[in-house]
Design a protein around this nucleic acid. Structure first.
Length: 331
DNA sequence: GCTTTATGGAGAT
DNA sequence: TCTCCCTAAAGCC
């Protein structure tokens, strides 16, 4: 369940491991059989992310658009090695397979790990494999390519790497014009748009709305990539009442929101985690990495004391989504 | 075992 | 504002 940072990370994964290669495309589950046939065997030529949307280009003509929604996930397995330089640059992500669901470091059980030597008898490339259901994993690690586990909507397979997609909200093949139409409808993304131009776009889109800022930050036509976690955390960091209409916000407050999003997204893409309490001492930082409950200011902390003032964090349902905030600090 | 929950969004009303 | 869809894992007997 990704916000913008993980979608960018996934796009980057495809850029590293599949762009430039011929890809066998299939739909083990069957629900994407027609779409898969359109791009099967083509070479992947580009990988892009805008907000929570990802676009994979095949042979410079057809694009696969994927939106993961709440449940969607990509699982990579196979030979995910890089040369030494790239590997060092990638940092911890290079150590394991990757599940594109968000905080990759969150659940230790998510990654089974590398099996560098375990399959040396068949000379298989080093592979990593996601744990779906524990009992099935051992079998899945054997052989290449691995058997799809669970409901795999799309499988992208090259000589060395396989990527399985499950549970996406959107998965379709588009031409370039249709891709542009989708992108045009989206608000600015700090990793796509020029910093200044993006700031102006977000500012304009917020200032003309009477809708509460708590909803506007989640509106992908206002600004791209913010989800429920970043929404709650950004509002706290700005000490903003979520109910404030966008049009009532001073211009510099909105500019600061854009800059904070740019900042947080950068951290998220670099680390794979939604670290929203920067400036922590080392011990707190380690604790935050170990334990999701220690990672945020307000998200999922309803009823707990605010880290700043001690007031109990409030949970309110807004437009069907859970909104967390401190009624004292954010007023 | 069964129920609940999740970092989304589209479409109907 | 409501309903529905998508799937896996955590939580709760």
């Amino acid at each position: 369940m990704p916000e913008g940072h993980s979608v960018h990370r996934i796009a980057r994964q495809f850029g590293r491991h599949m762009v430039g290669d011929a890809v066998a495309v299939s739909s083990p589950q069957g629900r994407f059989a027609e779409g898969a046939a359109l791009i099967d065997g083509r070479t992947m030529t580009a990988s892009r992310a805008v907000g929570k949307q990802m676009f994979l280009e095949f042979d410079e003509a057809l694009w696969l658009r994927v939106h993961l929604g709440i449940y969607g996930a990509w699982d990579f397995s196979g030979d995910l090695r890089q040369d030494a330089t790239q590997r060092a640059a990638r940092g911890r992500m290079g150590q394991t397979g990757m599940r594109g669901t968000g905080d990759e470091g969150d659940a230790p059980a998510t990654v089974v790990g590398e099996h560098e030597d375990s399959l040396s008898s068949i000379g298989a490339p080093r592979r990593t494999r996601l744990r779906m259901a524990e009992a099935e994993t051992a079998a899945a690690v054997e052989g290449w390519p691995p058997e799809p586990i669970g409901q795999v909507r799309v499988r992208l397979l090259t000589d060395r790497v396989v990527a399985d997609l499950r549970g996406p909200t959107a998965c379709e093949v588009l031409d370039a014009a249709a891709v542009q139409t989708v992108i045009d409808a989206l608000g600015p993304d700090p990793l796509v748009d020029d910093a200044q131009e993006g700031e102006e776009r977000m500012l304009a889109r917020i200032r003309r709305r009477r809708v509460p800022i708590g909803l506007l930050l989640m509106d992908q036509s206002v600004v791209s990539g913010i989800g429920n976690v970043y929404r709650a955390e950004m509002l706290f960091r700005a000490r903003l009442d979520p109910h404030t209409p966008g049009a009532n916000l001073p211009e510099d407050v909105i500019r600061d929101l854009w800059r904070d999003w740019r900042y947080l997204l950068g951290i998220g893409v670099d680390t794979g985690q939604m670290m929203t309490m920067d400036g922590l001492d080392e011990e707190s930082r380690k604790r935050a990495l170990r334990n999701r409950a220690d990672r945020h200011w307000v998200y999922k902390r309803e009823g707990l004391p605010c880290r700043i003032c001690g007031t109990h964090i409030v949970l309110e349902v807004a437009a069907g989504r859970k909104l967390y905030y401190c009624p004292s600090c954010q007023s």
